[in-house]
Computed example of a mutant assay.
Amino acid sequence: MLCDDCGKKEAVVHIVQIGPNGRVEKNLCEDCAQKYGSTMLGGNEQPMSVNDFLKGVFSTPPRQAREEAPSGPELVCPNCGMSYRDFQQTGKIGCSVCYDTFRAQLEPLLRRVHGSSVHSGKIPHRTGGRLETKHEIAVLRAALKEAVAKEAYEQAAEYRDQIRALEHKLAHQEGAEAQEGEERHAAE
């Protein structure tokens, strides 16, 4: 596919811009994309790197930083030793434990960047539907809690029965998988 602007070089960048005039999509070559980016950033002659972009996204606005600033010592991940300040500078998490350590700071950030702090993507097939069943149970428990708060007891009883059926199904799935594992281990 050729560049939409120059029509000479191969397009390597796809830009989608949503503005007051609607959605505009452009396929640009590297040179035209750089020119387009500098005009979008107010004529800034220095090219913006991905790390600069991530720093801008991950940095906390000054007012909000003062409100959320911990009064004690800076949080540091007990597993890898990374601080939240290190994360702000690099835009990268050190390890999986960092997500738990910096949860209070990361949740608002994830909501701002992704619109949600909960993953709602696809569930792998190899889990045998267990994760999907667990998710259904969690959704029904929330609905049950809401129904009880609204004193809709008949609806709450239906949710309770559905939860029990799914928990029974989940126990059966996990039992079958455990039995398969034992049979495989015995065969080896």
Rank of each mutant, 00 (worst) to 15 (best):
L110K: 07
L106N: 07
E154D: 09
D100V: 07
D100L: 14
Y159R: 04
G91H: 02
A104H: 11
I163K: 05
V139C: 00
Q89N: 12
A157C: 05
V113A: 11
I123G: 09
G115Y: 06
Y153L: 07
V118S: 12
L109D: 00
L106G: 04
V97W: 00
V97Q: 07
T127V: 15
D100F: 07
C98P: 05
L131T: 03
V139S: 05
K92R: 15
V97R: 14
G128C: 05
K134T: 12
A142Y: 08
E151A: 06
S116D: 13
E107S: 10
I163S: 05
I163A: 06
L144C: 06
S117D: 15
G91C: 04
P124M: 13
Q89P: 03
T127H: 13
E146N: 12
E158A: 08
K122T: 02
K150Y: 02
S96N: 14
S117C: 13
Q155S: 12
A149T: 09
R126P: 03
H114T: 11
Q162T: 05
A142H: 13
A149H: 04
H119F: 15
E132Y: 08
S96W: 01
Q89D: 12
F102S: 09
R160N: 06
A143S: 10
K145W: 00
V139T: 06
K122Y: 08
E136I: 03
G94Y: 04
R112V: 00
E146G: 05
Y159T: 02
C98L: 06
V139W: 00
R141W: 08
L110M: 15
P124C: 09
Q105H: 13
A147M: 00
V148S: 02
R141V: 11
V118W: 05
G121A: 10
R112G: 03
K145Q: 14
R160M: 06
V97F: 01
Q155M: 03
Y159C: 01
R111K: 15
E146V: 00
G121K: 01
C95I: 02
D161P: 02
E107Q: 15
S116M: 13
K92Q: 08
D100C: 03
K134I: 14
P108T: 14
G91F: 09
A142D: 15
G115W: 11
R103Q: 05
H114W: 10
V118D: 11
S96P: 04
Y99N: 03
R160F: 00
G115C: 13
Q105Y: 07
A152Y: 03
A143V: 01
G115D: 08
H125G: 12
A157L: 05
D100T: 12
E154A: 01
G91K: 02
E107H: 10
A152Q: 13
G115L: 03
G94H: 02
L109I: 12
L106M: 14
A147D: 11
V139E: 10
R160I: 14
P108D: 08
R141D: 05
S117R: 05
T133K: 12
I93E: 01
I163C: 02
C98E: 01
G129E: 01
A138V: 03
E151R: 13
A152G: 04
E107A: 08
G129T: 04
E151S: 06
